[in-house]
């Protein structure tokens, strides 16, 4: 897998598994899970610094930005204005122009507001951001995002944190065939087979958080996800056999008694 690099906007990534840093028990667990997962891109959120209790440690003391690509997100933003504001703050706090853009439509589903997403992406791209949009499994929206300058798209497999796996594999497949940029399946993965399946369908990478952080043993699940993404990617490149309704014998008839 060493020569199988993922390239987005001229940046090269070693791992096709990207991970979030939320919901872990503590920073030590976060650090260990990410290390075991082999991911080199980690997402983070932008929030107010706790000014009353300065004893609280900083995530970036555990996740070295020299070792990992820090991908700030705009999680929790429900308007174009908020998403743009948080993106700008992330850039001011960080070291790069990368942003995982989320404009959420509703609290219950956390589905993206795709109209708002396109609007926010346009503004940010004009300001020089590298926008990786969290979008629906809608091929038309994905195409629009690419047309306005997104160097990759991040469609959901299922609602964030739901663990439902890929709800609409056919839409995802059409989406992957519709765009000529990397597709990173983001959100909804529940277990290793979901990640493998996403890669088998032809996803360029998978991003997950809850599936690892919420597992009974997050460190073990992080390892499972690493191999699932590898296996899925290898299978995709190897090319699976077609599905047939009836049997085809593997052993020859010739030479039988």
């Amino acid at each position: 897998m060493r020569d199988d690099r993922l390239i987005i906007a001229g940046r090269e990534f070693k791992s096709r598994l990207w991970v979030g840093t939320g919901k872990y028990k503590n920073f030590v667990e976060t650090q260990k899970a990410i290390e075991v997962s082999g991911a080199d891109v980690v997402t983070v959120a932008v929030r107010r610094v706790n000014i009353t209790d300065r004893s609280k440690e900083n995530l970036l003391d555990y996740i070295d930005p020299k070792k990992y690509t820090i991908l700030p997100n705009t999680a929790g933003c429900y308007t174009v204005e908020d998403a743009v504001r948080y993106s700008r703050l992330a850039r001011a706090a960080g070291v790069s122009d990368l942003v995982k853009l989320e404009v959420l439509g509703d609290e219950k589903t956390l589905f993206p507001d795709t109209a708002g997403l396109i609007e926010a992406a346009k503004i940010l791209i004009k300001e020089g951001f590298i926008v990786l949009p969290y979008t629906n499994d809608d091929p038309i929206v994905a195409k629009k995002l690419v047309d306005i300058g997104c160097p990759a798209v991040m469609p959901l497999a299922a609602p964030i944190g739901s663990g439902l796996g890929i709800r609409n594999p056919y839409n995802l497949k059409i989406l992957m065939e519709s765009v000529n940029v990397p597709v990173i399946v983001d959100a909804g993965v529940g277990t290793a087979s979901d990640a493998a399946l996403a890669m088998e369908y032809g996803a360029d990478a998978v991003l997950m958080n809850t599936a690892i952080a919420g597992a009974q043993d997050p460190i073990a699940m992080a390892e499972a996800m690493k191999y699932a993404v590898w296996a899925g990617r290898l299978a995709y490149k190897a090319g699976r056999i077609p599905r047939k309704l009836y049997a085809t014998a593997s052993s020859p008839i010739e030479g039988m008694l």
């Binding site: 872990y24 920073f27 997402t43 983070v44 610094v49 820090i70 997100n73 929790g76 964030i160 958080n209």
Partner: peptide, 20 residues
């Protein structure tokens, strides 16, 4: 004045997260 930095986060707002 608003002072912000990076915290752990995936796709959802960490404030709304439930106990794992």
């Amino acid at each position: 004045v608003e002072i912000l930095s990076f915290i752990g986060g995936g796709g959802e707002s960490p404030r709304r997260s439930t106990d794992r």
